[in-house]
Design a protein around this nucleic acid. Structure first.
Lengths: 187, 187
DNA sequence: CTTTCCATGTAACCGGTTACATGATTAT
DNA sequence: ATAATCATGTAACCGGTTACATGGAAAG
């Protein structure tokens, strides 16, 4: 389990409210971890009880107050010890692969639309990542205020992972489409 | 949720017991879906109650009896309808990416061992997949008895996906190692 | 004689998802 | 008026993981 740790990393990069964290999990953090706001609020509360994070009420004008969280010493220590313990390389879960193998017992041609939909979704994500790369990681100083070089470079490395993943998926889905095409008229 | 459907596909490819299914989920099906035997037995029972699969007791010599399951009409229909409904492209979950971004707030050099471990694990998987590809998908007729061409080709396409994934991961982890190396002496 | 393989389960727990709820402000 | 954004939650459910349990056969 790493949601706690993902939250710690995000709060170390920049303190924020549960709502803001939820937004980040739709964006930058989203390409390696997802979480809904319900989950985040629940975990955040537990982390506060455990002394991993500290909250501060921030009044705002024209908007509801927010509780801004930042990482406490105990949280930093928890993250550090997690970073030092080995984790098992997780295995993937691909619904689509189940469908592809299942198509052999149904109509292979019917899957083409579905595979194309997925391909489009990955293409879209790739475009988003590439745009983010240009925005955040070009120009030596642009928006580099208060961010260490290590932080910046490691974030970039993770983003490159997301980009590589999307490119691989697109290429593979093209491969699959080619295979499906050979069973178009009939099997 | 697709475990039911993964089981249906596997049983369509070849009927088998819960135990045998669990083994398959460690092998061929394992590169796109994982499941433990506990989970499989539970789901299998539910599927039998729902009439998706039918069981047949098979006595064996020198071994405990087994319950061999095969797909019933209702199961085939359930699979077909699932194949025809669109599913959302799922997003990945990478503990390792959390660690990499977290390393900026700890010791980046300490992550090198961990990343190398993961790299080795992916290298090993890649070797297994490639060996499986040679074993099962070379030679026009080898072990192709009773397996349709569509079935064979689609299985191969899924395997190529696993291979592409492992290759991408290895390349990316090399990228990460290079990035980490630049923060070796100190950040 | 101890480990591994075959074979099937129960029980507890917990993280993640979905549905529901509230309430103010800003934009169309 | 209506929808969208900001902001924070509760409650129910359920799939997946971990631990525990049994019991015979074959292999080292």
């Amino acid at each position: 389990m790493a949601l706690e740790h993902a939250i710690l990393v995000s709060l170390l990069e920049k303190p924020g409210s549960g709502y803001e964290l939820a937004r980040r999990f739709e964006r930058s953090i989203g390409y390696f971890w997802t979480a809904t706001h319900q989950q985040i609020y629940r975990v955040l509360k537990r982390m506060e009880n455990d002394g991993w994070v500290a909250a501060r009420d921030v009044p705002q004008q024209g908007r509801p107050d927010k509780r801004e969280y930042s990482v406490a010493d105990l949280g930093r220590a928890a993250l550090s010890s997690w970073l030092h313990e080995p984790i098992e390389p997780e295995s993937v879960r691909h619904d689509l692969a189940v469908k592809i193998r299942g198509a052999a017992f149904d109509d292979p041609a019917a899957l083409v639309t579905e595979v194309r939909r997925h391909r489009a979704a990955h293409e879209e994500r790739l475009a988003r990542y590439l745009a983010g790369e240009v925005r955040d990681f070009t120009g030596t100083d642009a928006r580099a205020a208060g961010v260490s070089e290590a932080e910046r470079e490691l974030q970039h490395a993770v983003l490159r992972g997301g980009i590589a993943y999307e490119r691989m998926m697109i290429a593979w889905l093209d491969d699959v489409l080619g295979t499906l095409a050979r069973f178009g008229p009939d099997s």
